[in-house]
Design a binder for these strands. Sequence first.
DNA 1: ATCTATGCAAATAATTTGCAAATGA
DNA 2: TCATTTGCAAATTATTTGCATAGAT
Lengths: 127, 127
Amino acid sequence: MVKTRDTTARKAILDILTTSDKPRTVKDIIQLLSEAALEVDRTTVFRIMNAFTDRGIVRKLEFGEGNFRYELLSLPHHYHIVCTHCGTIRDVEGCDVDEIEKQTAKKYNFKIIHHRLDFFGLCEHCQ
Amino acid sequence: MVKTRDTTARKAILDILTTSDKPRTVKDIIQLLSEAALEVDRTTVFRIMNAFTDRGIVRKLEFGEGNFRYELLSLPHHYHIVCTHCGTIRDVEGCDVDEIEKQTAKKYNFKIIHHRLDFFGLCEHCQ
DNA sequence: ATCTATGCAAATAATTTGCAAATGA
DNA sequence: TCATTTGCAAATTATTTGCATAGAT
């Protein structure tokens, strides 16, 4: 396992993810870093996100937008609701699909490591 | 609503999707068309998939591979199991998350149109 | 001092757009 | 016929790679 250096950019990105209520894109992150007066190269952000993903610090997700989003792996288990009109994504607490999971594992002899459950629809504003 | 012309390429793509047991990428589709002796331009396939998506004929999905996959919207409701080792994706019948769905809709005043539930793990061969 | 991290330029890959030619209804 | 489709070239967008330099321990 390779060591991780605690650089300014990495600390700032962890900070951003910690205070986010939804998964973030690289674009988001660059923007937020910039608002914090930190200009970090696009390549570097991609590389940091990959390093974090490899080390199990973040989870790489996507919601059909044509790009990836990242969230802290240390967040409590949750799912997402995605507004198909305005694109808003929101974390939603808890998730109980144990029963389905158990049945699926047995029926298909599949060792389940994790799952995702996301609801798509219209948020309060877009209905 | 714009009219749809029943061209050779479109018919062949619908045929491919109908006989697939998992969502397909544009690359897959081009390959399968080619095996059926039909050389269709990449651009055309992308355009057809977008047209089908807009008309509610197919559903656009992704599984963290960095590209989209498509499946017939007319398929019975199902979810997917994705092997994180060999990348195999498989359709899995049925899906009962009604209770979670109801609670979520009420709690967040969110009008749910559809959801996705996918399990990631190791298939029979990769365990 | 040494090895990892970053910036910059350039390369890939997926997907989209413009436009003229081909084709289905 | 005539609007919709397709092919081809070129543009866009997300992401990755190579390499020399800056920075962390």
